[in-house]
Design a binder for these strands. Structure first.
Lengths: 198, 198, 198, 198
DNA sequence: TATGAATGAGATTTCATTCAT
DNA sequence: CATGAATGAAATCTCATTCAT
């Protein structure tokens, strides 16, 4: 119990520092100080900086996915459900800015191959999660038959970019507008109705 | 002339290494070796690693934007024009994998604030470039009136994610399918026509 | 009794690990695991790594000396006695490879001066033990009058090197040949009889 | 030229420190200070501490072997030649105390396997060198037919132990006595002539 | 008596940057 | 203009030791 407490303390600090400075500029010393443990304790609990990073991302994304699942257990009409999903993802993405910043920024090849694989695994799970929702929608006849994997990534890509931008410029577009824009694109596209004759 | 030649040689090498390994794992030694110049020459031409990085990204994105502009100077009907735009961006993104990998991966806060600003500037230009196209489309009545900046970012986000994935798994979905999916989403959305009554 | 049992368990594990990896690469964690006790228990029984090391070596060499003494309590003719001694040392040295490896390898200055002194003390005792045997042999007229201390060290040096080599390459020369070679050198030297006129 | 100078400077300092403190207690900082170069320069010239250690030992033993070869290019009668050899080895061993201390103390398994192999290689060369001399002596009928490899190691073992002891206690037996003892053992053995009837 | 999570000093190593040539 | 040997600050990680339980 005590041990898990320390681990959480460390993950919290790591999450804060990694999201603020990125993987490479985050220093283990710094994380230790913020977590109020000795540097050795970091290594006692996570065998390397990379592993700590992986654990941070994994824990964060899992939390988000769990929350999304909880919020979506509803019986709304599909369109409302879709809007709910988008709204939910965007809001969680923004409120868990720590994780999402990391997630958006550090998919680079800069980290141990070993660990990168681990992180990509979690990202894959997240995309799969979206993909499953889209698939269900299609099976029920609510969605067009498109390659699920690609549409799922498209959704994630849109959300990623718009939310990352919002986190960078919080004073920019309000969250509601972001959600609306994504919802509109996903439901009817960008194109005006009369254009299809052009 | 000789001088510009060396600079290009360096930028070429830097582009290759940065895209392959990311900013932090790219070593100046390595770049020097690949560029076939001495390490000192790197510093003679670019005052720091960060500046070299910024120059690499800037040059790359500018090349891409120039090419897009060239390819789009046509008088096709709008829908064809839109599809052309998407197709063009996707193909360039993939063929300039060196730049786009960097672009997708290193927007993080891991680099000098100074330089990060510089890079984000170029990215902003790119988004602005898309935004202008969307704006024109709207003014001509082809596109729905949405917040341009947000839709532009949504477009870029989709392209980013799908192309990055394609570069990671070239054997996955074919480029044509990627283009189609993006085009379909942007033109009509994901939702099946009959769903709007649900 | 229970206590002594634990101590022995620890000394056994320590002996195995130290001989396998040497003082510095042996980790206390490792020894604890092999001894099936908690790390704290190591420190409860031996105040430091160095002390544990010293205890390991001391116990080992004492065991060997005791065995040699037991095996040599005989009334054979001197030459047989000498051969017996050599044979006995070599065989024990090889069968107690754990101790002898340590003994041969870690006489370096790398360990606490304090502890090094302690270990050298045991080694001195061992050499003294050989020296006493040689002295007796001389007094009885069996051996040439040579500086005992030096000849004792010469004997130990030969045995050390040849046995260490045998432990490294068990498939090399058979033990019998090693014993014979040492015995021949010690009894008649390397030089052929007719060479003394040369 | 400048570069080789720095390398020599480093090897000199490394030799001094390693022989004084052993591999593990020697700190790279210390060596850098003594060599009057920056720590980075150590790593610029030798890729790791282990490699520096290996280079130090190799260079030292090679110097010794070269000197022995030079000193032995004579046409003395065999017995004089043998005594010359022993005398030469002992004196060089003692005068190059830096190398020989390292050589005697750090054959342990404490260092990278990789590097240990390298060092053992040089030691093997040294033993081979002695072996060749013994072999020639036997072929010319001066020496008894014994397993060369074993006798060579026996010689080296004796020298090792006696010289190491002399370096530890310089006030003990004088060098001449050490040489005489080894020579006597090698030429006629320890055993008194009349013992063979016992 | 025994435990093992926590510690933190200190070691090796890296690499962007400089500057004499 | 170009070079590359030299630098040294700073980062990650190790592990003997401690101490509350």
């Amino acid at each position: 119990m005590k041990k898990e407490f320390k681990k959480d303390q460390i993950l919290g600090a790591a999450s804060a520092i990694f999201s603020q400075k990125g993987f490479h500029q985050a220093k283990m010393d710094e994380i230790a100080v913020l977590a109020k443990v000795a540097k050795g304790t970091l290594y006692y609990n996570f065998s390397s900086k990379s592993k700590l990073f992986a654990a941070t991302v994994t824990q964060g994304l899992n939390k988000i996915m769990t929350q999304i699942k909880e919020e979506l257990e509803s019986d709304l009409p599909f369109m409302a459900h879709l809007k709910g999903l988008i709204s939910c993802i965007v809001r969680l993405y923004i409120s868990h800015s720590e994780v999402s910043r990391i997630y958006a920024n550090e998919m680079s090849s800069s980290i141990d191959d070993q660990v990168l694989v681990e992180i990509k695994e979690v990202r894959k799970e997240f995309i799969q999660f979206i993909e499953d929702i889209l698939k269900t929608g299609e099976e029920k006849g609510y969605l067009k038959p498109l390659p699920h994997h690609l549409s799922a990534m498209a959704v994630v890509g849109m959300v990623d970019t718009l939310c990352a931008n919002h986190l960078d410029h919080p004073a920019g577009s309000p969250v509601e507008q972001i959600i609306d824009t994504i919802f509109t694109i996903l439901s009817t596209g960008l194109v005006a109705d009369n254009s299809f004759n052009a």
